[in-house]
Computed example of a mutant assay.
Amino acid sequence: MNGGRNRSGHAGTCGICGRSLPARVLTAVDLVRPQLAQLLDESDPDWRQSGFVCRDDLAAARRAHVERMLREERGELTRLDRAVIDSIDHRGTLTIDTEADFAGRAGFGDRMADRVAAFGGSWAFILSFLAVLVAWIAFNSIVLFAADKFDPYPFILLNLVLSCIAAVQAPFIMMSQRRQEAKDRLRAENDYRVNLKAEVEIRHLHEKLDHLLVRQWERLTEIQQIQLELMEDLDRDRKG
């Protein structure tokens, strides 16, 4: 043995899986939070004897702890809850570019609907359409003689054209609104996953800090007790 390592270079043995692993993937028993230690006790009551637990088994215990906590608070786990649990287990990120992800799903008809709806709600469409209306009315009321007017008052042909434009434009606008609702729903799901993971991670940090503070206080108490015993021994030697 050299510095706590064996000849194969391993620092210790995991109390759950029994593998001999290097120190970088092992966690001392004293540093495991009580909530996770309780779950490990349920799977293997003798896991503390080796003094270590590997990172994989600790991650599995963390996953089980999060799943149990969410079940107690929310009841049945949803698809989004399981996605958060998987990201914690694999130490992955959940933040995605919703705009790029949604744009990749859009087909030609979806993009065309968005462009038509965007143009129909712009000042360019309003001003150009107003110019066409004024020119149409002026052309059929002022410029030409009565015999040459192709759409005399009350402009029946103009009403037909406006009705056709409205009938065609309305479905495009509805399609674009439906796509916007789907985009908002995707963005809301992403925000929910990120917020839930952040909440769970913050809880883990609080539990870990509380555990470390308790352990530090216990060690300080032990050191103080040893110092008191040493002082008592010195006092007895002086008196003797």
Score class of each variant (00 low, 15 high):
109 G>R: 07
108 F>W: 05
130 L>F: 14
127 L>T: 06
108 F>I: 07
115 R>A: 13
143 V>R: 04
142 I>V: 15
116 V>T: 06
124 A>M: 10
100 A>I: 07
107 G>C: 03
125 F>E: 01
132 V>L: 12
112 M>Q: 06
100 A>D: 09
102 F>H: 08
134 V>W: 13
105 R>M: 02
136 W>S: 01
109 G>S: 07
107 G>D: 02
110 D>Q: 01
130 L>W: 13
106 A>L: 14
105 R>T: 12
118 A>H: 10
135 A>Y: 14
138 A>H: 15
121 G>S: 11
106 A>D: 04
140 N>H: 08
129 F>K: 05
129 F>W: 14
104 G>Q: 12
124 A>I: 14
104 G>S: 09
103 A>S: 14
106 A>E: 13
108 F>V: 06
128 S>W: 11
134 V>Q: 03
128 S>P: 00
125 F>M: 13
116 V>Y: 01
119 F>G: 02
111 R>T: 04
110 D>V: 03
128 S>G: 07
137 I>T: 12
113 A>S: 15
130 L>A: 15
102 F>D: 05
102 F>W: 04
123 W>M: 13
129 F>R: 06
137 I>A: 13
123 W>A: 15
116 V>A: 08
139 F>A: 11
100 A>M: 05
135 A>W: 12
102 F>T: 03
119 F>M: 06
132 V>K: 08
108 F>A: 08
129 F>S: 11
126 I>H: 07
143 V>A: 08
100 A>R: 14
118 A>K: 10
112 M>S: 11
117 A>W: 02
131 A>W: 12
124 A>W: 14
113 A>E: 00
109 G>Q: 05
104 G>C: 11
127 L>M: 07
124 A>D: 06
119 F>K: 02
140 N>C: 04
117 A>K: 04
110 D>N: 05
137 I>E: 03
121 G>I: 06
115 R>Q: 08
142 I>E: 07
130 L>H: 03
108 F>H: 04
122 S>H: 14
131 A>T: 15
125 F>K: 01
126 I>N: 02
142 I>R: 14
126 I>C: 04
106 A>V: 06
100 A>V: 09
122 S>V: 12
130 L>G: 15
118 A>W: 05
135 A>L: 13
142 I>S: 07
113 A>V: 05
134 V>P: 03
125 F>L: 09
133 L>Q: 11
121 G>W: 09
141 S>Q: 14
120 G>P: 06
136 W>V: 02
113 A>Y: 02
